[in-house]
Amino acid sequence: MANITAADVNKLRQTTGAGMMDCKKALVEADGDFEKAIEILRKKGQKVAANRADRDSSEGAAIAKVNEDQTSGVIISLNCETDFVAKNESFVTLANELADIALGFKSKDDFLAADYKGMTVQEKLTEQTGVIGEKIEIGGFETLSAPFVGYYIHAGNKIAVLTGLSAKVDGTEEAAKDVSMQVAAMNPVALNQEGVDQSVIDKEIEIAKDQLRQEGKPEAMLDNIAKGKLNRFFKDNTLVNQDFIKDSKQSVAQYVKSIDSKLEVTGFKRVALG
């Protein structure tokens, strides 16, 4: 039987993130073979993952990152089952490490197949499921490109937002953060009315007409009044038309133009937990 030292156990723990006792047991089972011990821990993770596949993983950490020249960004959410795990420092550290990797990818599948310290991201998630004992997975995955991309992460890592602007000028960074905070708080359905899905528009018109009928309005008047209500829906629910949360006397579009007359919001992405 191999002599398992504290240094061996610590090395395996540093490599895998598994607990001290789990590492010691794996090394004993592997008769001191380091690579075999890693495989044992991974298999344990696979078994736990299979047992917890139907669990709800609505807690976690939503992390936004942008590249060095601030023209591209990504949001991922590393999901788990409990708030206790979500607040753990090592869990948040892992979420940030994975977000750094995700910056190089445009699809979730390619990201999950990417390398993480000698294993794939998906293998790391499975391993951590075994280590932590909770379902660990990537929930949200969103990317955004623009002449300038800024971001905002709400306190506690519960909401992360990317905002794209049409140019990089003085004040752009602050403007992108302000607009991202707007998106986090107000959760718009689209950038502008052109971006609202027709099915949503049809539903809003129908709701408005039903309300008007219940109020006893004549059928001949319904279309015009419903259109007015629809315009109100666009104002309240599309980003550039919303009242700016820091100054309700101007819209988001007007706020952005106060930074530079030609500046526009080109897009946004939002990932929220829960």
Rank of each mutant, 00 (worst) to 15 (best):
A2K: 10
A7K: 10
K11R: 15
Q14L: 11
T15D: 05
M20D: 11
K24E: 02
L27T: 12
L27F: 13
A30G: 03
A30E: 09
K36R: 14
L41T: 04
K44W: 12
G45K: 07
A50S: 12
A53V: 12
E59Q: 08
G60E: 02
V66R: 14
N67W: 08
E68K: 15
E68T: 00
E68F: 11
D69T: 06
V74D: 14
V74A: 10
I75E: 15
L78Y: 10
C80S: 13
F84Q: 14
S90L: 02
S90K: 05
F91W: 12
E97D: 03
A99M: 08
I101R: 06
A102W: 10
L112W: 04
L112P: 09
T120C: 14
V121C: 02
Q122E: 03
E123I: 15
T126W: 04
E127Q: 08
T129H: 01
V131T: 09
V131M: 06
I132G: 11
K135M: 07
I136L: 03
G140W: 01
F141V: 00
F148G: 06
F148K: 11
A155Y: 14
A155S: 12
N157C: 06
G164S: 03
V169A: 08
G171F: 10
V179K: 07
V183F: 09
V183D: 09
V189L: 10
E194Y: 02
E194I: 05
G195K: 00
G195D: 03
Q198E: 15
Q198L: 03
S199G: 01
Q211H: 14
L222K: 13
D223M: 11
D223V: 15
I225S: 01
T238S: 08
L239K: 04
V240P: 02
V240S: 13
Q242C: 08
K246H: 06
D247V: 11
S251G: 03
A253I: 02
A253K: 15
S258F: 02
L263A: 07
G267S: 00
K269R: 09
L273S: 14
G274M: 05
